[in-house]
Design a protein around this nucleic acid. Structure first.
Lengths: 206, 206
DNA sequence: CATAATTTTGATTGATTGATCAAATAAAAA
DNA sequence: TTTTTATTTGATCAATCAATCAAAATTATG
């Protein structure tokens, strides 16, 4: 089978799909362990136990591979969080669950988060635009859901007045920041951080 | 003069210091324009109008140069913000000024901020630890000042009860997030973002 | 089984990079 | 001015990497 980088609608053979999965997982481990810059095809191949040429066979190029890894990582964290949020009925509970689940995912999937950050802050479009400056808005399902919760809460009179865009940014920023300033240094444990952040947001959205 | 990477206490000649300055500024422009990965010594030299070997003469290696650039960038933004914060007398005003000045600096020095991010998310220690996972705590003067303001406000009874570490993280997260989700897409203008964030923080710290 | 299609490898290629060095130039000191 | 020291350059080196390809191995198909 030829390199299939047009669409993934083509039916992949079992082997091909399993290989792509295997390479993807090896790439995640590599990104976490040694970072994007050192994550050469040969390093990824080594961790996958295959030859570098095989990666080129299953992915059109390194960008194609990294995009695939990025999509997988985003899908996983997004579905993890959204599943839990949508189980709740009240907007207050939805908001609190959004925060708690986001932080919980960081705790249980630290390596995945590291790999995600490595890609987002290293990969660039063909026009050399860094991914971290893109923000496809419509593609950020988590941000969309968060803004929906906030808006609904305001309409129901459960939340007070505030700028939804700024508030959602603040919440996402506080969640993302945990990975950097706190998680690495173990200064504040996840449970405390989660509880206290929920308290702060609860008061801010009143 | 030999490469002086031990300490900068040695008295540099005027030429040497001016060159280092020139190279530093060229590096910042290069990082902003094409990013860390493509910011090779030859690209930086081109923008500085000198030869690549001259960079190696004034800096022991690329890491040394990038560390120097990073320090310069941190010094500038830190002093810009702290100067304005310390002009205020009340903790409420200090906190609001901290937020407004941080965001204002991003607006007026967007390229500097981009260069800073490029370094922080690409550079690694000799042990391959990424800078973004370091967080030297004692070296982050801004975080320290912010926590001091919050603590003082609580002692004075001006602020209510909340976890200072989480609150400072939230505020810094909201400020940093502007650069990504908002500044690039121009979705929310700086003035609005600043005003609304202050409102949110004011309520949260009550 | 025989043949075709798919999968996998090892070796190679061309491009880029950071660093080095001898030689040239400029500046400072004697 | 002469001599020493500092600065600058162009050329070169060794290393690394993504991509390519012919050939080998494996699997699927008739």
């Amino acid at each position: 089978m030829e390199n299939n980088n047009e669409k993934k609608e083509e039916k992949q053979s079992f082997i091909a799909e399993a290989r792509r999965e295997q390479i993807t997982e090896a790439a995640i481990r590599t990104l976490d362990k040694i970072g994007y810059v050192k994550a050469s095809l040969s390093q990824i191949a080594k961790r996958a136990g295959i030859s570098t040429a095989l990666i080129s066979y299953h992915f059109s190029d390194k960008n194609d591979l990294m995009n695939h890894v990025l999509m997988k990582l985003l899908e996983r964290s997004t579905s993890y969080i959204l599943e839990r949020v949508r189980r709740e009925s009240s907007v207050e509970k939805k908001l609190e669950t959004f925060i708690a689940a986001s932080l919980a995912y960081q705790g249980t999937h630290y390596a995945h988060n590291t790999a995600l950050i490595e890609i987002v802050f290293h990969a660039r479009t063909a026009e050399n635009m860094p991914y971290y400056k893109l923000n496809e808005e419509k593609e950020d399902l988590l941000l969309l859901e968060l803004q929906l919760i906030l808006l609904e809460g305001q309409e129901q009179g459960v939340f007070g007045e505030f700028h939804v865009g700024v508030m959602s940014n603040t919440i996402q920023g506080a969640i993302g920041e945990y990975m950097f300033t706190t998680a690495a240094t173990k200064k504040i444990d996840l449970e405390t951080y989660s509880r206290e952040l929920v308290n702060i947001v609860r008061k801010a959205t009143k």
